[in-house]
Design a binder for these strands. Structure first.
Lengths: 219, 219
DNA sequence: CAGTCCCCTTCAGGCTGCTGTCAGCTTAAT
DNA sequence: ATTAAGCTGACAGCAGCCTGAAGGGGACTG
């Protein structure tokens, strides 16, 4: 597991680094937020330990920025005792846990293990298709890392395409998928939903075969 | 949990008592050390909140005496003396934690929970989700540091979401979780419980996917 | 055993926003 | 150029969802 330690206190920093190393994890230790910013952009860490009082700014801002970019790397805040509001603010800003200085190194290990375990839970299998990442179990689609919410009908339609990638599907077939036998649709409903899907997922995702039907485009 | 509050300041004492009561704990409030001495001899408390400056002596002495008798009830010191020497003396005398006046009541709740946890065996791992801090083992949730009591059904429901954060869960799936196979629910029970959860935990916690189900919102 | 309290379920009314429909426009094929 | 086929903005209706209120029932107390 790769851990980023952001801490300007050299004594505490060294102690934490050694403790983590003793646990068999690898540590990158930086003492400034700007350096940390570079690190998280170039390396995918599994966990970030963040001190709140640093020479070049407050850690809260760093954390908020991180989350604003959509980064969900777990963060444990290390904070001194008298920063009550900071701690609450930290958790609200998206921290996963906090430790109050001075903390026990064994407790640090425990917290790291806890967070790691929480996040190593088997994630759902992801299907990639071009810029789209599809989590079938969660029914979520990310486009360029951003969540794209689909409505029920849109999902049903998109699922039909995903089930037969590259295969031509006539409107009649699609209607059959979307509407249990009995229901009747007498208009261009499929066209409308395809249009809505393309607007959300990108126009290249579904291709039109004039007179024949639709098919899922190549990634 | 039974808590003994030893504090001679009537304003602060009342505030602390109310806060603890709001957290669902029971409080005994005394203003003198001799009364406190009687209390600890007749009642088994789970936690003692101890002011250091009292009309009939210093709290440190009381604490030392307590420990000398082999009493290991956790003690949190409340002190206006923001002095390192006092803190150290308090901790050396056997205190488990301390709060410097004026302190945040939410912080007090958190500390109480923390101490309680420490003495209930290992510290339980805390899961943070936005403004929520969730103790899965203790089945307790703190929102902005304040305890939010959940009923059995509410917890079962919330747990289902926590198990698969971000994943879409249909009402059918949730019903399966809440009601062992046999039971039948023929109404909008899930909706009602979701509604109650949102009222307690914040409306953004659970998101509705119309026609498909619910999912745990992003922190 | 009566009394009390609180949780759970059910129901009903109100609201939201998805969905199907249509009209007018664009594109492709002949 | 003509025509068929597909695209898309707009909109009304309604299914699905939310929530306050009420009643039943279980657990606890005196």
């Amino acid at each position: 597991m790769r851990i980023l330690l952001i801490e300007d206190d050299t004594v505490l920093g060294a102690a934490v680094r050694d403790q983590i190393a003793a646990d068999g994890q690898s540590v990158d230790w930086v003492t400034r937020l700007d350096v940390a910013g570079d690190s998280v952009r170039t390396t995918a860490f599994d966990l970030i330990l963040l001190d709140l009082m640093l020479p070049d700014g407050r850690g809260i801002g760093f954390l908020k920025e991180l989350r604003a970019r959509g980064d969900v790397t777990p963060v444990i805040i290390l904070t001194a005792l008298d920063q009550v509001s900071d701690r609450i603010e930290g958790l609200n800003a998206g921290a996963d846990d906090y430790l109050v200085k001075p903390f026990d190194l064994a407790e640090l290990s425990a917290r790291i293990g806890s967070v790691a375990r929480r996040y190593s839970g088997n994630p759902n299998p992801l299907v990639s298709h071009g810029a789209l990442q599809i989590d079938l179990a969660a029914r979520s689609i990310h486009r360029d890392g951003k969540l794209v919410p689909l409505t029920a009908r849109e999902w049903a339609l998109f699922e039909a395409f995903l089930a037969r990638p590259g295969q031509l599907l006539s409107k009649a077939q699609l209607e059959e998928k979307l509407y249990a036998f009995d229901a009747e649709v007498e208009s261009n409903t499929i066209e409308v939903h395809v249009s809505r899907l393309r607007k959300k997922l990108g126009s290249a995702v579904i291709e039109t075969e004039r007179g024949m039907g639709y098919r899922l485009g190549k990634p």
